[in-house]
Design a protein around this nucleic acid. Structure first.
Lengths: 224, 224
DNA sequence: CGCGAGTTTACAAGATTTTTACAATTTCGC
DNA sequence: GCGAAATTGTAAAAATCTTGTAAACTCGCG
């Protein structure tokens, strides 16, 4: 019998899912916050984890990351609310395998659980691409026209941030906060310096950016 | 008549397998938990053992290890649930010979049992290799160009962790968590120290790593 | 005690990040 | 359109961070 860990602070939803899993032949284990959920994930080693993205305390993002940081490869489904920005890149960044947007039917959730369990055994390589650039999220390697090229940590982080926010005007402050975090306070010009290097390394047409566009007076916009 | 020991906590499955074995001309012996299964394995000396990986109490992993620790060479098949990470290295680490993913058909299980009995008579050595390095998982010995070299316990554990996670960017924390476990909290630089020694002992081209690559700002990546 | 394995420390070498300075470009009032 | 002011591009210098490595240290054990 397969154990499914459900981490969600919404009591009603958590119980609903638990009941559904039980009737469908799974063994549900419930956690009502990120901290205890993470502990159970690590000690229990469940066959699959469902985790709510938005929780007080330890967020779903953190839970996912730490589960992966502990070396566990357990299939992981994120439950996200409607407004949440949820894309493939963020998903892979935090190590999740799939996501379901609330509100969802139990049928849909079940289908995704089964699908994930079915395909989770063979190791998939996870990558996203745009134009002639391919970003391999598990290897942390970037290829342009198939040939591997080296990005530094900041460049790589910036790139994945752009990938997570395609076609949106992003201020330098937004970028700094998201990519550099709240701890460090670099000059906003730092962003420019790194964008320059991304362009040098990734733009197909040197001299005229096609992907990393500048939004004058604001910041940048990434166009896949 | 060949005796087959079945260790599984799932009553239905255990009985199904038992029945199947009986009709196929084997003598099945059933155990519903790891502890009694291990005892029976040691006292009964069966010709083959089927063991469920995930059981309360003594897990299948432990059962396998202890059977091997007791010096028994009995063929051993692991029954694993879908989500379980099950690769050649782990399999050999714990001393199992084959595995079947649940749910499985009795035909498939039977075929594997027969195949294993057929080839289990001649002593097989179990190893994985990369470049000119050969890792003998049963003997816990590493050879480079055929010549045996000594790895310490930590070095060996780190190496097998790399072997289990080829071609993936691994953070120092992931490595620490998986190789050193949650109990001890060594400095992350400890990882570096051990990687250095693995490189010194295993890299063919001293000075430029071909297998133990560093991912600057992140950790390491092992390339077989 | 002395040994061996494992861990930490220290520091040099190297890589990356940030800042800086100046050139190029864009914006905007006229 | 013109020119000043603001903004951005860019390369190179400066500051910081990371890693490789060896040596020092710790710990358990015969």
């Amino acid at each position: 019998m397969l154990t499914v860990l459900v981490i969600d602070d919404d009591d009603g939803l958590r119980d609903t899912i638990g009941l559904m899993l039980e009737t469908e032949g799974f063994r549900p284990v419930l956690a009502d916050n990120g901290k205890s959920g993470l502990q159970q994930a690590l000690s229990l080693r469940p066959d699959l984890v469902l985790v709510d993205l938005r929780m007080p305390g330890l967020s779903g993002i953190e839970v996912c990351k730490q589960i992966r940081a502990a070396g566990m490869k357990t299939p992981l489904i994120v439950l996200s609310a409607v407004g949440d920005e949820m894309d493939k890149v963020l998903l892979l960044e935090i190590g999740a395998d799939d996501y379901v947007v609330k509100p969802f039917g139990t049928r849909e959730l079940l289908a995704r659980i089964r699908a994930l369990l079915r395909r989770s055994s063979p190791e998939e390589t996870k990558s996203v691409s745009f134009s002639d650039v391919e970003v391999d999220l598990t290897r942390r390697v970037v290829r342009k026209k198939g040939e591997e090229l080296k990005l530094t940590r900041a460049e790589y982080n910036l790139l994945t941030y752009f990938l997570q926010n395609p076609d949106r005007a992003l201020t330098r402050d937004m970028i700094l906060n998201s990519v550099w975090g709240y701890e460090s306070f670099p000059n906003t010009r730092t962003v420019d310096a790194h964008v320059v290097r991304l362009r040098q390394k990734l733009e197909p047409d040197q001299g005229t950016p096609h992907h990393f566009l500048t939004v004058h007076g604001v910041g940048y916009r990434f166009l896949p």
